[in-house]
Design a protein around this nucleic acid. Structure first.
Lengths: 209, 209
DNA sequence: GACAAATTCAAACAGATGTTCTAAACACAT
DNA sequence: ATGTGTTTAGAACATCTGTTTGAATTTGTC
């Protein structure tokens, strides 16, 4: 019917949207296929399973998101710890607030968190592991060599928590503070705040140890 | 079969567990009824709908959680802002980490965030609104009268983000840092860190404004 | 154009799911 | 004990779900 050989791609795209909106179990193969303009049997033919399609969506979405906002922050080796932290936070926030094509990837992760499958651990190891190592190195530099690892980890979680909050609690935030925007300018402002806030927190934690 | 007139309560209890584990759509009425030792028709009789049961569970869970860890922090009027912040963070973390009866309420909220229904906004307004006002007052006191409202809100979100992170990202955290515990002693340590970290961040934000 | 492989299609299948129906069991006031 | 309104039981219903099947169509290659 449509141009050939691209049904697989259309399925991936449509499935991402629908899975993100409804979660894995609540999503019906028929809705995906209708939105993709494909036959009901297409999913089983191309991905063998509904679950196979789900994993494929998760994987391709993670790759697309990291490609669009790479963890390599484009900073020279002379960049200070403050700059590195700011760049990391900024990049993470933009990835979260993205409304473009792989935007549904964030919602998929939310569903995974609420109801984890094997895919979650794989994703963390293969895709997000390197970014985490990066943030750990940044924090370690800021907090000093002598600080115990537990302090590094606490600061790391404080930073991640502040950023991911805007992803996790978006529906609640938009209900409580409807005037809060998620436009690029808002994100920039937010990134600055989180960086400043965290830098102060990190220095406080460094003093204590 | 069982003692009478308490089927409704057993359904509520069982439904909370199953809904939290599987989400709304993935949960089957039959599984709830089996776990509750009730007939399949019991849900429709007592709650008219599967959805009606879901709303009832959400409401009773929120009430139970707030009853167990009341937002009234048990502090006298002479308490300092630092003490109030610590008490708030501590209470929120314990509510999140609770493994007791209303523990599934947190997971239900996660599902609501990933896939919001009307129930979410009602819950925020009627149940969590007062706690938010409380935290806002604490931050306002710490940040000073002259700081703009946007600064207060940013700090508020930074604090909430750090706390809720341990709720939202629990599966990921336990996979990345398996050694991290969620026992009372761990929670106490965490509460102290978040309080100290945030106090430093708040004072930094106050200086800037 | 002809042939083999890959892809798409409509239809059907088997199982599960939310809900409804009717009769039976029960609680409780008289 | 009797009668009445409430609650429970099992079976059945209608619908939806993921998947399979086998024929039809299209694709790439000679």
């Amino acid at each position: 019917m449509r141009s050939t050989h691209e049904t697989e791609g259309r399925l991936l795209e449509a499935a991402g949207e629908v899975f993100a909106a409804r979660g894995f179990r609540a999503t019906t193969v028929r809705e995906i296929c209708q939105q993709a303009g494909a036959n009901v049997a297409a999913v089983n033919y191309h991905f063998s399973d509904k679950e196979g399609l789900y994993f494929a969506v998760l994987k391709s979405g993670a790759e697309a998101a990291l490609k669009k906002y790479p963890p390599t922050l484009g900073l020279g080796p002379t960049a200070t710890g403050e700059e590195r932290l700011h760049a990391f936070v900024r990049s993470l926030l933009f990835r979260i607030a993205d409304k473009g094509r792989p935007s549904w990837h964030g919602k998929l992760i939310s569903h995974e968190m609420a109801e984890p499958t094997k895919a979650l651990t794989v994703l963390i190891d293969k895709v997000y592991g390197s970014a985490l190592k990066q943030l750990e190195a940044i924090v370690r530099k800021l907090v000093g060599r002598r600080a115990p690892i537990t302090v590094v980890r606490q600061c790391l979680q404080s930073i991640l928590g502040q950023c991911l909050y805007f992803h996790y609690a978006r529906p609640a935030i938009q209900h409580i503070h409807p005037e809060q925007g998620f436009e690029p300018a808002d994100i920039e402002r937010l990134a600055k705040h989180i960086t400043q806030f965290s830098l102060a927190g990190i220095r406080q934690a460094a003093k204590k140890s």
